[in-house]
C-alpha cells in the first residue's frame, strides 16, 4: 500500500464517520480534530474503521501521537 492509497483509506474512514466533511480541504499537518468536529465516540468509530480496514490495533495510550493526518499516516505505515 503506497502513501496515496493509505491516505485514501484514512480519508474514506473519516468520511464514513463525518460525511459532511470536505475531505479535499483537509490539511495533512494540522490537528485533525481542529478541522473536523469529532467527539470521543466519533474518534473511536474512526479508529475502529481503520482497524477493520488495515488490521492495525491502536491502543488508547497512543492517541496523543495521532493529532494530524500526517501523524496517522506515519503511525499506520510503520504497522501495516
Amino acid at each position: 500500500m503506497d502513501d496515496t492509497e493509505l491516505r485514501t483509506a484514512i480519508v474514506t474512514e473519516l468520511h464514513a464517520v463525518a460525511p459532511e466533511v470536505d475531505v479535499d480541504g483537509l490539511v495533512d499537518t494540522r490537528p485533525l480534530r481542529r478541522q473536523v468536529d469529532l467527539d470521543s465516540l466519533d474518534w473511536l468509530r474512526f479508529l475502529v474503521g481503520l482497524h477493520e480496514r488495515l488490521q492495525v490495533d491502536i491502543p488508547e495510550a497512543d492517541y496523543p501521537q495521532l493529532a494530524s493526518l500526517a501523524d496517522l499516516m506515519g503511525y499506520l505505515r510503520a504497522r501495516i
Binding site: S40, L41, L44, H51, D57, I58, E60
Partner: peptide, 17 residues
C-alpha cells in the same frame, strides 16, 4: 477505565461517557 481498555481490543473499548 484505562486499565480495562488496555486489556481490550479496540472494538470493545469503552468510553468514560
Amino acid at each position: 477505565l484505562t486499565a480495562e481498555n488496555a486489556g481490550r481490543p479496540i472494538t470493545e473499548r469503552v468510553l468514560m461517557a
